[in-house]
């Protein structure tokens, strides 16, 4: 069975009201283990909406998303959160770090929910910082980081719980070309770690990369 199965997925905002808007229409998509998928589409096409449903950030209006055979769209909040915490690492366009905390404190945040020992915590933390290549800045407040460093910090946080799925929403939109290329290198690392990676983007830098397994384009909420 596929790692992620998306079946007849609809997302309708403000359903039943005058402002009703169908952001996603009948999406069907299977993603296999270890696959890297790029979702392309113009602004407003529904990329972010799709990712948010895959991460159980929001609930679909119809249809369902199965991860490892489990319908995550119907999970009560406690289980949906647990799913996000354990199986998903999310990388945001605006990095979404918690200002005022250090790199280390930001990266450790997903781990505080389970009662692991200090040494366990430290080793996971160290590992993630190393993978994202941000170890040398670990005590610095995230407000003082450069854009590229911020993203590496966000990546470390996404990796810290060793999730099987990495979702990235416009990861390069706030980066210069050099840092964007670095991100592509990191994608290769993900590939090596055998993670499922889904990147939503309209950045052409992702075009025609040989290690990408699949390109999916989406327009007006439908897969083309």
């Amino acid at each position: 069975m596929s790692k992620i199965v998306i079946e007849n997925l609809y997302k309708i905002y403000n359903e039943g009201k005058d402002s009703e808007f169908k952001a996603l229409k009948n999406i069907n998509l299977n993603i296999e283990d270890g696959e890297i998928v790029i979702i392309k589409g113009v602004s407003g096409s529904g990329k972010s909406t799709l990712l948010s449903l895959m991460a159980a950030f929001s609930k679909p209006s119809r249809g369902r998303v199965l991860v490892d055979g489990e319908n995550i769209s119907k999970l009560p909040d406690i289980f949906a959160s647990k799913f996000r915490n354990e199986k998903v690492g999310f990388i945001f366009q605006s990095f979404n770090l918690i200002d005022g905390l250090s790199v280390e404190e930001n990266v450790v945040a997903p781990l505080v929910l389970c009662s692991s020992s200090q040494s366990e915590l430290d080793s996971k933390l160290k590992n993630a910082l190393k993978l994202a290549n941000i170890e040398h800045k670990k005590e610095q407040n995230v407000v003082d980081l450069s854009g590229g460093e911020k993203q590496r910090c966000a990546i470390a946080r996404a990796l810290v719980n060793d999730p099987s799925i990495i979702l990235a929403d416009e990861p390069t939109a706030n980066l210069d070309r050099e840092n964007s290329l670095k991100f592509i290198e990191i994608l290769k690392t993900f590939k090596k770690l055998n993670k499922v990676v889904v990147v939503a983007t309209h950045d052409t830098i992702f075009d025609n990369l040989e290690f990408i397994d699949r390109y999916v384009s989406i327009a007006n909420g439908e897969i083309e």
């Binding site: 950030f57 909040d77 406690i78 647990k82 915490n85 945001f92 918690i98 945040a109 929910l113 719980n161």
Partner: peptide, 16 residues
């Protein structure tokens, strides 16, 4: 609100 949304996105539940 933004900060809470961030925490929620990394796995904090409503209860947490």
């Amino acid at each position: 609100r933004k900060e809470i949304a961030i925490l929620r996105s990394i796995g904090f539940s409503i209860k947490d």
